[in-house]
Design a protein around this nucleic acid. Structure first.
Lengths: 341, 341
DNA sequence: GTGAAAGCGCTAACAT
DNA sequence: ATGTTAGCGCTTTCAC
């Protein structure tokens, strides 16, 4: 059905090879031939077969993007930036969301090993996927280049890492709350790095980290709601909460608000990530900005470099992006007394 | 570098063909050979080359998904459902976001014509991409199967359509507002279909559609903010607003709220789509549910059917999904008097 | 400059 | 049951 190189060659009255050369802008075809081939190709509506080309060139012009889920706004924004950058170099992205399942990630790793893509970006959340790192190392060593986003690599030469400084981010955020006068500050969510920043700030001001104000729920709005619901059974709330991400913050806030607790008047609630909606929420969320666009762009650029030049500069093997405190309205100075339920 | 079929064949001491058959679970290989080949393949860590296989099978096991943008939660959710369904059949999705640009869509159409995918789903918003419909018809006729979501097809046999009944949805929503007592109801956003439903309800109750309460801004939160900002200059606000989608509703709501106007006490604001955040917003948004998961699943199933069986049943060539009014808290009975600014 | 031919890695007739 | 062979549609030496 589809028209092939052969058809063009025949109609143009030249050989397959010449046709291919002409169409690939080689300089060693006579102008006349070049023009004829191109004219015929246009007439015939010739479109080169990507599958055949992929086989011989050993390149598919696609890269795999592994993220937990697209529905998570953080990763949606990251994906967009990666896609934009890749697209400029005529690369396409195969969307690989794991739904937080390691087996899914393994499946994608094998897909990549099959030569379905020319490279892969693994963007992660926390340490959940650690178990696959060896497999990915093998992928990077023997098959296609890989770049990590917010994930740890044991070999940065093989797998460059793009990170955001979330420890510093949650540290700044917690410090901000403390300086606002808060002492009973809780932490919501499961993330070593973000919790470290929180603990660092607490320690710095000799404030106790209370186990009952530490929550390890799932990182979604629903997870946040669960935390809020638990909190509702306490007889004393913390005066402020640092949440792993903005979605958890929204969840906690919702659960509490529904019962008449006011934010920030009764309790301050902060997120991390600065997803778009956090700026348009009621109240607008105080949070920590992570430069998603820049990180996605850089990750894509590094991967492209790896694909075409097979290496990246030493100083690009590990890039850490600053995170900034975004002060909005969901946190304020604490009430004189903790709220009693 | 990578181990090929040939390597496995050599080491197993059988021919290429037999190796291929064994690995492809053919029943015409002796058990013994089957086992040997599989053992060797495992030992060698053999992974079939997807590019070579794609060339000979004329199938890439990938489908293209064309959407405006992943950052739009509606499409993120749709994408997730499509990906889930496709993934079960070992199909991968190539994410193609157009950023609302027709040229981008054309680029993807050509990509698909090159045989990069086995089929494509085009999910749209409104009528913006109409101009490419002929090109897509050609794609479907001469290259790979296509399924539309919320887009019009001139030939439903060639291109099946999955739709949500948005006219009915906005009709129900507007009617609900009218029955709550509203008369000055505005419409926000550019969508023929959704506006039709609104107008139908207004006409049914002999209520005038006032031009000054019709807004044609861009369908994002920012677009909504612009509308809200315009509204702030009016000396009389409408008592209720039907917005094209939840994001616009959030935008309008934000712009108004910032100036002290209360929702729903001073003005009722409703969205359409029922994206996740609308249920967790303050106030929770009254909106119209669109069954995104079901639609995505069905679109993927139809495409798969088209890919493997080359046709779908007549009654599946056009499927329209019901939309339901979701009553939450952003709309209530109007004040006695319009609010004066 | 152009063409013939080999080959990318695999599958699928067709023989044996 | 297994091997031989001919492609899939393209790129790329290497002769001419």
């Amino acid at each position: 059905m589809a028209v092939t190189l052969k058809d063009v060659a025949k109609k143009a009255g030249v050989s397959l090879a010449t046709t291919s050369l002409a169409l690939n802008e080689s300089d060693k075809v006579k102008e006349e031939t070049y023009l004829k081939v191109h004219r015929v190709a246009r007439e015939l509506n010739y479109i080169p077969n990507a599958r055949a080309r992929a086989l011989v060139k050993r390149k598919t012009r696609a890269v795999g993007l592994v993220i937990p889920e697209v529905e998570n706004p953080f990763f949606a924004e990251l994906s967009q930036a990666i896609k934009d950058t890749l697209h400029k170099k005529k690369y396409n992205v195969i969307l690989c969301s794991t739904d937080y399942k390691t087996e899914e990630e393994i499946r994608y790793i094998n897909l990549f090993k099959s030569g379905m893509v020319d490279g892969a970006i693994f963007a992660c959340l926390g340490e959940m996927m650690k178990g696959n790192n060896e497999l990915i190392l093998d992928l990077a060593r023997n098959h296609v280049p890989v770049v990590y986003i917010d994930r740890e690599s044991s070999d940065n030469e093989l797998i460059p890492v793009i990170k955001s400084d979330l420890k510093e981010g949650s540290y700044k955020l917690t410090k901000y709350l403390i300086e606002l006068g808060h002492e009973d500050i809780g932490f919501v969510g499961q993330s070593l790095e973000r919790m470290e920043g929180y603990k660092k700030a607490m320690a710095e001001y000799n404030l106790p980290v209370k186990d009952k104000f530490l929550f390890y729920n799932y990182l979604t709005i629903e997870g946040g709601i669960e935390v809020g619901t638990k909190l509702l059974n306490y007889d004393r709330l913390p005066t402020a909460l640092v949440c792993l991400n903005d979605e958890m913050a929204i969840g906690v806030l919702q659960a509490l608000t529904r019962e008449g607790i006011r934010v920030p008047e009764d309790i301050s609630i902060c997120g991390i990530d600065n997803i778009k909606i956090s700026n348009f929420y009621n109240p607008p969320l105080t949070t920590v900005n992570v430069p998603k666009k820049e990180m996605g762009k850089k990750a894509a650029e590094l991967l492209l470099k790896l694909i075409f030049e097979e290496h990246v500069d030493k100083n690009e093997q590990f890039i850490i992006y600053n995170t900034d405190l975004i002060i909005r309205r969901s946190a304020t100075s604490p009430r004189k007394t903790n709220i009693l339920l």
